[in-house]
Design a protein around this nucleic acid. Structure first.
Lengths: 187, 187
DNA sequence: GTCTATACCGAGATAGAC
DNA sequence: GTCTATCTCGGTATAGAC
């Protein structure tokens, strides 16, 4: 059934993603999610057997968001431009990062502690972007140290998000982004 | 000390700190803490009016841990040595960082989302170390950009901890620490 | 397929005996 | 001061009408 609104399953995932970003997934109750998505509570279980299954869908959704951005970046002419676009998007989202931290970082850290299948799945929130970054560095001619470079870039990103959030100050993102852009340009 | 048996209060805080590090504070029940600390559940409320008050004590304890380390570093002869000692301790704890993330980073991020007084208090987990780092950079002759340098160092630390934890790989710490040591030495 | 009502459990917190 | 027993509430999850 297709209405003007996205279907209920999609609405639940989107709402859960949004609410979990602000409060953490565990702290967000199914009742809250269902209400905000305008779906009766009991009905959630028609779409997801357990809350954990909903968590997996949230991870999947974050991955999709990254993939959509990646698809845009991949259209750019050179690996260096693609790396700069990645860094630029971090800068563009600095206010959000300061308010709620990194959307994938927080989720990854939280679900990692749950253990089990969820821990493994959530790790792809990091490994997939890092893999893409590594590919760009390799394409830019850095064969031997592509992994180190990718890790450094992603680690810097996670760090600035954590500090911007914890100290409630988006300025650290501005400073670090400037540093990273210089660094990329001189590679 | 407000009790006839200070050991229990301390035991509760230490146990809560340890358990919260592994699973997150919110996910750790008072029952679990009390049992592990060998204190009857109901008795917890003699030492802490609410769970939130216990959280504050945990933050205080993490701050004390940092202050103890800082006291050692402050004995070193030069600011540069002190900065290198800070970075060295990160390297020494890399296995732990990969297993459970940064003890202050995770706590800060989690409590920040709770809002209220706890959010403010937890921010000092970041601001106090950053302040100390800034002081070292200033003492090393970097008057104008001491804040930027301190933020960069702390942000790098948070980033490597997040990635080491999320991707389950302590190697990123080794790589980043090497980079930071070179950076400090050429300042 | 969709929704209401509810079971069930574990959490934080309290009362009060000793 | 210390501990046991218990209350209450909110959470996940289920049963079953429609």
């Amino acid at each position: 059934m297709r209405t003007a609104q996205p279907d209920k399953r999609t609405r639940l995932i989107e709402t859960a993603t949004k609410l979990a970003y602000g409060r953490g997934f565990r702290e967000t109750s199914l009742a809250d999610i269902a209400e905000a998505a305008r779906v009766p509570v009991g009905n959630v279980y028609y779409y997801f057997k357990t809350k954990e299954e909903l968590a997996e869908a949230v991870v999947e959704r974050r991955l999709d968001e990254f993939r959509a951005a990646r698809a845009e970046w991949d259209r750019l002419g050179s690996p260096k431009e693609r790396l700069l676009a990645f860094v630029g998007s971090v800068h563009a989202n600095r206010e959000q990062l300061a308010r709620g931290g990194c959307p994938v970082g927080g989720l990854c850290s939280e679900l990692h502690k749950e253990g089990g299948a969820l821990a493994k799945k959530s790790a792809t929130l990091f490994t997939e972007p890092i893999g893409w970054l590594q590919k760009q560095f390799r394409a830019a001619g850095h064969d031997k140290d592509s992994r180190e470079l990718a890790m450094h870039l992603f680690s810097s990103f996670q760090g600035m998000a954590a500090v911007a959030h914890g100290a409630n100050d988006p300025k650290v993102v501005v400073m670090e982004v400037r540093r990273l852009k210089n660094w990329i340009n001189t590679l």
